[in-house]
């Protein structure tokens, strides 16, 4: 028996919008810790890891660990039928091949339930060790989104370099080149508007902009984004989900041939 009641149902809607273009099918894992997902894109270049902690749900019942395979496009279709202010409850029964999404309007005058077929998915779970990163950049998520979008109109890849001067995003394409440098800026009205650069050592890595642009679909989930870089590791782009957990995207770097 599984019953997860999420008062801020819009969070789940936003999570689906952030993941459905990167991953087609995924197993949602439910345990005492929370509701989580780990899935790679079809080319095994990018990975999404989601955690919504059990404490973030108004009601969280998960009698035993369960994994539910879902087609994210179909799940998104169903969640789009929920209002932005709706409370969403996810229900499942042991051994059932369906999951139910129940939507309640804030004043309880409309209650809907949508039953979706589950699917068997061979999960390819990767072990991601805790790592020390050479540099961690925290910046407004809208700014990161803007940079990725702007640079992708010039080139296909971006070089992200962190030095003591700041973080530089560079691209080149047929029409020319572009460089955007963001310096640390803590003198802002709100902490989420700050750009904070923690650097242990300089790092420079190349990434496909197509994937970074896809990650920025998580922008509505958080005012700020954290980009963690190490020369021997995939980049981690993390959006914190208020009081609940996170959505993290991992992207393997490109290397010079």
């Amino acid at each position: 028996m599984l019953e997860l009641r999420l008062v801020q149902g819009s969070l789940l809607k936003k999570v689906l919008e952030a993941t459905k273009d990167l991953v087609t099918d995924a197993n949602f894992d439910c345990s005492a810790t929370g509701f989580s997902l780990q899935a790679m894109d079809s080319s095994h270049v990018a990975l999404v890891a989601l955690l919504l902690r059990s404490e973030g749900f108004e009601h969280y019942r998960c009698d035993r660990n369960i994994s539910m395979g879902m087609n994210l496009n179909n799940m998104s279709k169903m969640l789009k039928c929920a209002g932005n202010d709706d409370i969403i409850t996810i229900k499942g029964d042991d051994g059932s091949d369906t999951v139910t999404f129940m939507f309640e309007s804030p004043n309880q005058d409309k209650i809907s339930d949508f039953e979706m077929k589950l699917m068997d998915i061979d999960s390819e779970h990767l072990g991601i060790p805790e790592a020390e990163y050479h540099a961690i950049v925290k910046m407004p998520s809208s700014e990161f989104q803007r940079i990725c979008k702007d640079l992708s109109s010039i080139g296909d890849t971006v070089v992200i370099s962190v030095t003591k001067e700041g973080v530089k995003f560079s691209t080149r394409g047929d029409i020319g080149t572009a460089n955007i440098v963001c310096r640390q800026n803590k003198t802002v009205d709100k902490p989420e508007e700050a750009t904070i650069i923690e650097m242990n050592e300089p790092v420079s890595l190349t990434f496909a902009l197509r994937y970074l642009n896809s990650f920025t679909k998580a922008t509505p989930l958080s005012e700020s984004v954290t980009v963690s870089l190490s020369s021997e590791l995939p980049v981690v782009v993390e959006y914190k989900i208020a009081d609940m957990g996170y959505i993290r995207f991992y992207l393997a770097p490109k290397i010079e041939d």
């Binding site: 095994h44 270049v45 990767l126 393997a252 490109k254």
Partner: peptide
């Protein structure tokens, strides 16, 4: 053009 790495080169399957 730089070559694209695969995540499997960094993280092991569990």
């Amino acid at each position: 053009t730089p070559m694209q790495n695969d995540l499997g080169e960094f993280f092991a399957m569990v």
